[in-house]
Amino acid sequence: MSETVVRATEADEPLKKLKQKMDNEQQQASTKKPSQALAIFNLLLIIVLTVAIAAAAYWLWPQWQNMQQQSADTQQLQQRISAQAQQQQNTEQQILNTLSQNQNAQTRQLEQQLTVVERQLNLAQQQVATELQVQIQALRQQVQTKDSAPPRHWLLAETEYLLQLAAKKVWLEYDFATAIALLNTAQEKLIKLEDPSLVLVRQAITEDIEQLSQLSSLDLTQVHLQLQQARKSTLTLPLKQQQTEINTVTKPEVTLKQWRQTLDYYWQQTWRNLFIVRSAVPEDYFSLTNEQQLMLRTSLSQQLLLAQLAALEHNNAVYSEAIQQADNQLQRYFDPAAIAVQQLQQQLQQLLKLDVSRAQPKALRSLGQMQQYQQQLEESGL
């Protein structure tokens, strides 16, 4: 019986080993299933991420290249605009220098012309003075040769000389006031004679006095001095100024995340350099450089100098135009609130009303009548 039990036990031993082996395999299979599923999930996740990264790169890379290209184009455009602005500034500076040199040359030329005119006037005055001295000497000689003549002839000779002197004052010096005084003196001497035969001469003297009284005698020396003083004041007159402030935009940091802000910044900078937008101001307000201020002062002084020359030459059209141009420049470019500017403007308005053209009087009849009367006396032997 014991042998039977032993044999049964030995016969069951392979079954137990096979069952144990199957149990082990089942346990191993149960442990392998979760690990394989995790590996497959990881593999799928990697594949999905790879595909997503590839798709994102395929979509974003052209945009990144486009943004880089636009940024490079913007920088090139900004460099070209800066170069053009610098070139334009250099050109404007050359133009300003050329205009300044031309204005200086014109000013020197006008000053030389003024000097020549003044010299001519001085020479003319000296010639007139010399002629008057010669005539006075001749009159003295005539008086000395007629010492025995009655006082009537002396008065007639003095009257004729006064009439000659009045005619020269009118035609050579255009000094109407002195000519009127000389005619009045001659009239008084004829009144002392109480001679009815002199009525035609006295009537001609009266007509000449009335004619000259109607002509306005302008003091050109006073006009010249006023314009010269106005030229000196142009160096200190205050100009209009208007300073404008331009808003600046801070440059953003160039990063991939802020590419829109960066592109917008360069776009705004490009258009801001081309067109500067600011608040509207009156058209007469300017922001002037030192060269431009000097040009404005020189231009105003040049117009006043031209008015001086025109006044000395009795050219009323050029004189009025120069004064009007100077007044326009004064109103447009200089500060109207300054007292000096207001005073100069009032002075220019007064000078503009003057007529510097030379008056053209009619020929004096008194001298001819007096000479005709003297000839009649010589013919009659009186």
Rank of each mutant, 00 (worst) to 15 (best):
V5N: 10
R7M: 03
A8L: 09
A8K: 09
T9P: 01
E10L: 10
P14K: 05
K16L: 10
K16G: 07
N24I: 12
N24S: 09
T31V: 06
I40F: 10
L43W: 07
L44C: 10
L44G: 11
I46K: 14
V51N: 11
V51R: 08
A52N: 09
A52P: 07
I53F: 09
A56T: 06
W59C: 02
W59H: 04
W64R: 13
W64Q: 15
Q65I: 05
Q68H: 04
T74V: 08
Q76W: 10
Q79A: 14
A85V: 13
Q86C: 04
Q89V: 10
N90E: 15
Q93D: 07
L96Y: 02
N97R: 11
T98D: 14
N104D: 14
Q106M: 14
Q109S: 13
T115Y: 10
Q120E: 12
L123T: 12
Q125A: 04
Q125G: 00
Q127I: 02
V128Q: 11
V134N: 13
I136H: 14
Q137C: 00
Q142P: 01
Q142I: 07
V143I: 15
K146T: 13
K146R: 15
D147F: 14
P151E: 04
R152D: 11
R152E: 04
W154D: 12
E158S: 14
L162R: 10
L162D: 06
A167D: 14
K169H: 14
T178N: 12
N184L: 11
T185Y: 08
A186T: 03
K189G: 06
I191M: 13
S197R: 06
L198N: 00
L198P: 01
V199G: 07
V201F: 03
I205Q: 00
I209A: 01
Q214M: 15
L215W: 03
L215N: 09
L215M: 04
D219P: 06
L220R: 07
T221A: 14
Q222L: 13
Q222E: 15
H224I: 12
H224V: 13
L227F: 06
Q229G: 05
R231N: 05
S233D: 13
S233F: 11
L235G: 10
L237W: 03
T244M: 02
E245W: 11
E245D: 07
V249S: 06
T255Y: 05
T255H: 06
L256W: 09
Q258I: 02
W259P: 04
T262E: 08
T262C: 03
N273L: 11
F275T: 07
S279V: 04
S287L: 09
S287D: 07
T289P: 02
Q292K: 05
L294M: 07
M295K: 10
L300D: 09
L306E: 15
Q308R: 11
V318Y: 11
Y319H: 02
A322P: 01
I323M: 00
Q324P: 03
Q325P: 05
L330Y: 03
Q331Y: 04
D335L: 00
P336R: 05
A340F: 01
A340I: 02
A340D: 02
Q346R: 04
Q347Y: 00
Q347M: 01
K353F: 05
S357W: 04
Q360I: 12
A363Y: 09
Q371S: 13
L377T: 08
G381V: 01
L382Y: 07
L382Q: 02
